[in-house]
Amino acid sequence: MSGQPVSNLAVDGARGGLLDREGALAKLMIAPAILYIVAMIGVPFVLAVLYSLSDATTGDPSLNFVGLRNFTAALEDPVFRLSLWNTVFFTLASQCIVVLLSRLLATALLKTFRGKWLVRFLIMLPWTAPISLGTIGWLWMLDSIFSPIDWVLRYVGLLGAPDALLGAGTNLYYLGIPGLAISSIILVDVWRILPLATVIQLAGLSSIPKDLLEAAEVDGASPWRRTLMITIPLTLPITSIAFLFGVVFTFTDLVVVYVLTRGGPVHMTQVLSSWTFFKGIEGGDLAQGAAISLFMFPVLAAVAILILRMARRTEVV
């Protein structure tokens, strides 16, 4: 530093003026994020609230105040009630499965074995492909005529023969029978979220001090005991974060239902986001669509608060 010319120092000092002021720098750095949030989330959210209190349509987005009429109309609509239930059910069912499977996968990926990179690659694959593309792939897998799953089942004699275990029909019609359609949606939701949850779980498992586990092993604790007393408690915050992230992604997802079933058969797989789209955009009732979408807000807000609290707790730990 002693060798640096005085004039250069002066210039650096002038340049550094703004950079040295922590308050100004903080505002500068955070401004793009705030702008982004205001433009992309804040404005649409405020618009959604305004629309939901109006009689706006896609063809006439002017705002004439109608009070809570759209909310009461939504609550009286049996399709809305079914969509609400489906949204909650699909989310919880898929995320419980995701937490279990991701824990198993993460535990397996901690071990060293041949072809580990390939397994890791395959697990990450669903996360790297666009959701719509992956779901179109599933649409083909579950097709009522060309399903390759059905082809394999027929080939091994489980389907398509008079005494076949899964019936004499040529296909199982995964998306045409309510129980199978619901299971298919949950399956695809699991497939989509599993990679993220596995990576999060892997990070959690890697952070457990090895000496703690080794000490427990030396003390004679069985693998189950080590899991129950050490691994699960220590990774609970991060597991919860994986769960909550999955909840947010699944609760708000439109693509899986829209591509696979469009909410059918007979609205049995309709969810809030797809019903919002059909009512608000396709049906033209923007106000009703906005009201339906706002029913997602309390749940998402609660989950967001929980995630933030968990994250802070993890930070403290």
């Binding site: 649409l139 009522s144 059918g264 007979v266």
Partner: peptide
Amino acid sequence: MVPEVFAWT
């Protein structure tokens, strides 16, 4: 018919 018609695009 068969149940495929409930799932058609």
